[in-house]
Design a protein around this nucleic acid. Structure first.
Lengths: 223, 223
DNA sequence: GTCTATAGAATGATAGAC
DNA sequence: GTCTATCATTCTATAGAC
């Protein structure tokens, strides 16, 4: 049972250090020093540095996905099995944005770790992300119920763009703040969520005819 | 002058290997073997592994930014100093999407390198990206000329979301293909560009009143 | 100036004693 | 399960040949 103590100590120390400094800047020796355990303990309990990162990320991803699905179910239940498209998109992007944005000092080690995982795309994390497709399919299905007249291709693109805006906002929050001289307020998380949801929903509900306009031929004379 | 040969050989080999395997999977020894030069030559010509990556990325970024600005100028010139918002957004996201999407076998080592740079966000590349703000300001200014009635905050968010959709599509193209069972065609680059431009422009031109709706209070009972 | 050979410091991983 | 000692590999730095 002493094993569990060591194991947990490593996980806690690793998450804190990765959140603060990033994956590439933290060595196994840093982690074992912070956790007050032996260097070989990491390899014994997790197998490798990559598997340690993977375990951390899997744990946090499961919690995030559970939160998303709870919000989605709540939205569909309150709509009698068919949720509003805004509520669906809000369930998709709300939890991750709430965890990763907001005033600096309020962000937990958990959220800061997830930001790192989003920014520094290391191999073990990429492998896990590729398995999230089943989870996303549940949202695609809910969107189909909300907008039965939309083609599935359009729905997939809308889902994709919603995630794009949410993740990019997390990844590049610093740049957006600088670019706008602080006028874009990234600490107002609910405002950010509303913007992402509104923008993604607009693309899904606006008249489709504009999509195939010949505008694509303008402004290009070379190549 | 033999220096230039060695230098160039290192750059060519490094770009090819990084494009194929990713930054974390390629060692300096792999690069010097591919380039048929000595290990220390890398340090002599570039100082460190990070500076080699930085030089590669800077070169490619400059070329990309030049292409973007050329498209932007062309759009503004043909509109008498005020371009259509669609043309501006197209100049912003078109060049990078054309370089990084399209049929697998048509993607050059250059484009594949830029994809890697976009996916595996290593420290030297992050540092450079943070300096791109001046470049983006030129697009923000053009957007202000195109939509003088829009608040600057809205314009910055629109610019940000356009980049979000473009970059996320490059990063997660594989996942979108799998999620949609191949129904979202990422080889049709001009269609992807049209979708991104349309979606971003919609958010900027649609009636603003919806942005601050009370919908943000729905579907959340906990936390 | 240009490049090579070689040494140094640090990292992830492992074998084997306890 | 835990720990010490050690390995192979990596990036970096430098002395000195051409």
């Amino acid at each position: 049972m002493a094993s569990d103590q060591t194991r947990t100590a490593i996980l806690v120390a690793a998450e804190r250090l990765y959140a603060d400094r990033g994956f590439s800047e933290v060595t196994l020796r840093d982690i074992v020093a912070e956790a007050n355990v032996n260097l070989a303990a990491v390899n014994y309990h997790f197998g490798s540095k990559d598997e340690l990162i993977a375990e951390l990320f899997v744990t946090r991803s499961i919690a995030l996905n559970r939160e998303r699905l709870r919000d989605l179910r709540a939205a569909e239940d309150s709509g009698g099995g068919r949720a509003d498209i805004h509520a669906i998109l809000r369930a998709l992007v709300g939890p991750i944005l709430r965890g990763c944005l907001g005033p600096e000092n309020q962000r937990s080690a958990v959220a800061r770790f997830m930001i790192r995982a989003s920014i520094e795309s290391v191999p073990p994390i990429r492998r896990i992300k590729n398995k999230e497709i089943d989870h996303l399919r549940k949202f695609a299905a809910a969107m189909k119920r909300a907008l039965p007249d939309r083609s599935e291709v359009e729905l997939f693109w809308g889902l994709h763009f919603a995630l794009a805006m949410a993740h990019h906002t997390i990844r590049e929050s610093e740049r957006l703040t600088k670019l706008s001289d602080g006028r874009c307020d990234l600490d107002d998380v609910e405002d950010v969520i509303a913007r992402v949801v509104r923008s993604a929903a607009l693309g899904l509900t606006a008249s489709e005819t504009a999509a195939k306009s010949p505008a694509r031929l303008s402004a290009r004379e070379t190549r």
